[in-house]
């Protein structure tokens, strides 16, 4: 029971984190001419944020709470 509720809360948290990361104003911080690891900053940022959110979701549903 508790595990389920916790997983659910974590998913909601992932959703909120995603909403924040994928949108204005956070997005605008990275929305400029710059290069990181040979990649355009905004391109790298969106994919990194995206991967982070997916990782968060995977962690939420797959990890077993002791």
């Amino acid at each position: 029971m508790h595990r389920r509720i916790l997983a659910g809360d974590r998913l909601i948290a992932a959703f909120l984190v995603g909403c924040a990361l994928f949108n204005y104003p956070l997005l605008s911080v990275f929305d400029r001419h710059a290069v990181i690891f040979e990649l355009p900053l905004v391109y790298a940022y969106v994919f990194a944020a995206w991967a982070f959110v997916i990782g968060l979701m995977a962690w939420a549903v797959e990890r077993r709470v002791k």
Binding site: F15, V53, M57
Partner: peptide, 13 residues
């Protein structure tokens, strides 16, 4: 593609 990603976080509900 970001929209569906977010929905899947709520998909559990």
């Amino acid at each position: 593609y970001l929209g569906p990603t977010l929905v899947m976080a709520l998909g559990w509900f």
